[in-house]
Simulated assay, not measured.
Amino acid sequence: MRLLLVEDERHLSDAIAHLLKAKKYIVDCCYDGEAGLEYGLRGIYDVIILDVMLPKRNGFDVLNMIRQYDVTTPVLLLTAKDQVSDKVHGLDLGADDYLTKPFSTEELLARIRALLRRQGNVLTEDCLRFKETSLHLSTHELCHGEKKIQLGLKEFNLMSCLLHHKRQIVTKEMLIEKVWGYDADVDYNNVEVYISFLRKKLQFIKSPLMIKAVRGVGYTLGGGEE
């Protein structure tokens, strides 16, 4: 899962990013509204964590522009403002949730998990599941029944992305941006190699899941009977 964090307070941003990375999220950080808007419009994130009080563009403006361009990524607003009018304004602009500073790390993580669930992802605190196959976020283990196997970091991130978009076509461009990063010097062959690794590991644990290639586009994850 790839998250975008737009927060201009560097110490707070570093602390949140460290927390999220420890929970196996991939995190991109921006420190002003202009950069946050540029990154947010890419549409590659699973959740955007957006501070309201930002230099160059405030969070309300960034949120408004993101929604005007039909980016549907869930947005969690962070702000020191606790007035009801500010909360209502943010929600009316298209925010999915609102967290007032200071906040506990447990609440932040819980709200992120809730936003991911609203997207239709079967997510517990430490596990993604699909058709009795599970991916454990803390150990990077892929399991089915009593069989399990450890995934490397790139394999884990690819499998996480496919599970979050199960039964949907995930383009190779999206996989590169989510797993390697927007500016990474990676070609499609890298994706194909890691997809091959994942297929072998799914076979090893006797999972019914299949990663099917969509010629010239990308991949889709489904059950063996689909």
Rank of each mutant, 00 (worst) to 15 (best):
L162E: 00
M159K: 02
C161E: 10
T100R: 02
K24S: 15
Q119K: 15
A213R: 12
D8L: 00
D46I: 01
A80S: 15
Y25D: 02
M53T: 04
T100H: 06
I211M: 05
R215D: 08
G223Q: 05
L108N: 10
W180G: 01
L163D: 02
V217Q: 13
G152L: 07
S13T: 01
N58I: 04
H89D: 10
D70E: 14
L41N: 07
E38C: 06
I112R: 02
D183Y: 15
N121F: 14
M65A: 12
L135C: 11
L123W: 07
R111W: 11
A35P: 01
S160M: 06
C30I: 01
K154W: 13
T124W: 09
I211V: 14
N190C: 12
E173Q: 09
F204H: 12
T100C: 12
F130T: 05
D32P: 08
K200D: 12
F130Y: 15
P55W: 06
L135N: 03
G36T: 04
M65L: 15
N58R: 03
G223R: 02
G59D: 07
M174Q: 11
A184R: 08
H89W: 15
R67Y: 13
A95I: 10
I26D: 02
L128E: 03
Q203R: 07
V122E: 13
G120C: 12
G40D: 03
V27E: 09
